[in-house]
Structures are given as structure tokens and as C-alpha cells.
Computed example of a mutant assay.
Amino acid sequence: MREGGQSSGQLGELIRGLRLTHGWSQSRLASEVCRVSGQCTVTRSEVSRWETGRRIPTPVWLRHLAAALQTPLATFDEAVRTMDRRTLITDLAATAIAPLAAADLIRSGFAAALRSGRPSIEAWQERLEQYGRDYMTQGAGTIRQRLAGDLVLLQQQLEHPQLWAVASKLMTLYGKTFPGSDGAKAAGWYQLAANAADRSGDDDTREWVRGRAAIALGYEGASLPVAAMFANQAVAIGDGRPTLARVNALMGRAHAAAILGDRRTALRLVDDGRRTFDHAGSDEQASDYSVPWWRFNVFTSLLGARIGDEQLVDEAQTAARSALPASLPRFRTHLDMHQGMLLARLGNRDAGATYAQSALDELPPEKHSLTLRMLMDEIKAG
């Protein structure tokens, strides 16, 4: 097992955070790693060395850790990489998928640089706001390709903390263009975004990135231990302040509880989220960086469907539909599909799947999102 280096601190924090999410001691984690590996050579002291960064687990032990902690291996892989700005292009090339090959990615970044030169901090912040609006109306493929090019350009300008803040939010959005259920790309990008947010030195950004990752994974029902870890980190950074990040974190934890069958905890967290929302809700209606009233109720509607609570679904749907902008038909499809999930949870899986599929078919294919397809799979699975 290798001696640690610059990146070992990030990896150690990740291991510790996931262990605490499970409520395990270092000895318990050592036992779980032994169990999945079939070898009892890991001790509490070894876990301590991993967590403090004195040693980096070998690739074999990283695989066993991922299995024991029920976490995508790619999440650990991202933490192993340093956040030096010169290596970001490698991370992008390694995680981008078709139609962006590495050569296309590099060309896109240089083309953006030739068109716009070296954008100012204000220009990057304006571009960030535009991406937040575009995500609500455009497909994941279109967003991903443009974002990849801009991230390649931005990685050459990361001398200023404010640009690390921009980069972290763009990387969070980039992660959302991959389905969390693939067990790799989405969670890995959220970890990379959290590391970038830490470089910004801005606690609001650090909290927001983690809260957004928590609700993204929780809503998709993917990588739940990672979702819980990000939610807990966001809550700790916020220290009880009513913020949008806290709303996202609480609702991410609520969805994780609902999926795991803990109805009481899910409903308690929704109540906490609603109280926080009352102080921190957004006026902005159509940006991925905002949580207006209609969007909070979209979160709540899906949670109610997951636990089979007809009254909660009805109340949330009424509130969401009354305020949802007509320019965002994809989210109306979300609400329709929640009705299908509710039918399935109440015992009529076939009718629920038919209802949800009909709603999805009514939305033009170019408006579909990865999240909608994941919801369809969840409904069919019952």
C-alpha cells in the first residue's frame, strides 16, 4: 500500500465521510473490507492511515473499499486525482463520452479561446448563469458538449478563487448530464466539483455544490451513500443557516430515506426542508441554480410517490402545477410520471408504467432527460 501524497488528503476525507455516513467505526469498516475481499489483513490502524492520508490504498483495496461502502469505484478514482489545473483536461478527456472524443474536446476548448480570448471573471459568471437557464430547457447532450469545451478553456484561468467557484458549479452541472445510476461518471464529477469548490475558499459555494449533488443523486435514486455524504457535508458547512443548499441537502436525504423504506425520516426531512425553503426559496423560476416554489414541490411530489402517500402527492402536484412556467414542459412530464409511480407503489405496477410511459411519449424526444428515463426504469421495476 503506497505512501500518501498530495491527493491522499482528499481520498482520506472521502473514506472517512462515507464511513461516518454508514455510522461505522474504523474497526467496523476494516471488518467490512475483510468480508468483501475474503482476506482479513485490514486492521483499524490501516483504515486510520488511509483516512489521515499517511497511505493510499492500492487499486485492489480501493475496489474492496468501494464494495464495502456501496460506492462507485470512480468516486474514489476522482479523489485520487489531484486538482492541479493542468490535470483537469485529462480528467475531462477521461470522463467525457460520445460524441466528444478527446481530440474533439481539446479542439472545442481552443475554438472557444480563439472566439472569446480570455474571458473576464464577470464574463464567466454570466456564462454560468446562462448555463443554469439552458439546463432547464435543453437536452443533456447539447449541454455536455458546450460545457466540456468551456471547462477546457476555464481550466487555463484558475488563478483566481472566484473562477474556482465558477468551475465547481459548472462541473456540478456537467455531472448532471450523466445518469447517476451508471455508478461512475455523475458521482465522480460531483466529487471533483466539491474539491474545486474547496479551492474557491467560499463556504456558500462549498455548501451549494454538495447540496446540489445530494438532491441530484437522491432524486435519481442513485449512489445513495454518496448522496448522504454530500448532504451531511453541506449541512455541516451551512451550520444551520437557511440556504438553498440546505434545502437541496435535506431533500436529497429525504429521498434517500424514502428509497430505503424509512418513511418517518423521509417525512421529517421534507418538513425540515419546507421550513428552510420558507426562508431561502428562490424568486428565479427557470435556472438549475435556483429552487422556486414549484421546484420544491416537484421534489416533494416524487418523494410522496416513492412512499405511496396520495395526499402528499396531491398537495405537492397542485402547488407545483399552479406555479410551473409553461416554458418548462419537461418538469410537467416529471409530475405526470410521479402519478404513474404512485399507481405502481399502490399496487398497480402495469397501470403505473403505462401512465408514465404515455406521459414520457408526449414529450418531444429532444426534451427528454436522463433523469426522466431513470424514473421510467424505477417505475417499471415497481
Rank of each mutant, 00 (worst) to 15 (best):
S369Q: 11
L346P: 01
L11E: 02
A67F: 06
S287N: 10
G238Q: 05
W24Y: 07
R55Q: 10
E310L: 12
L328A: 06
A140P: 00
P365T: 15
V247A: 10
P364M: 14
G308R: 08
R264F: 09
T52P: 00
E129W: 07
G252N: 09
G340T: 11
I89M: 03
G9P: 00
R206Y: 05
A280R: 05
P161Q: 11
R16P: 01
S8W: 05
E207S: 12
A254I: 11
P59C: 12
A196K: 00
A187Q: 03
R118T: 14
L14M: 04
R35A: 13
E129R: 12
Q6M: 10
E366G: 09
W24D: 00
R275I: 10
Y289V: 06
Q191I: 07
T90W: 12
A356L: 13
D198S: 11
L153W: 05
G238K: 04
L29A: 08
D202S: 13
A227S: 15
S168M: 05
Q125E: 15
Q317N: 14
A353M: 12
L11R: 00
L217P: 03
P179T: 06
T75E: 02
D377W: 04
W293R: 13
G132F: 07
I56A: 02
A93T: 06
G201N: 09
T265Y: 03
V166H: 03
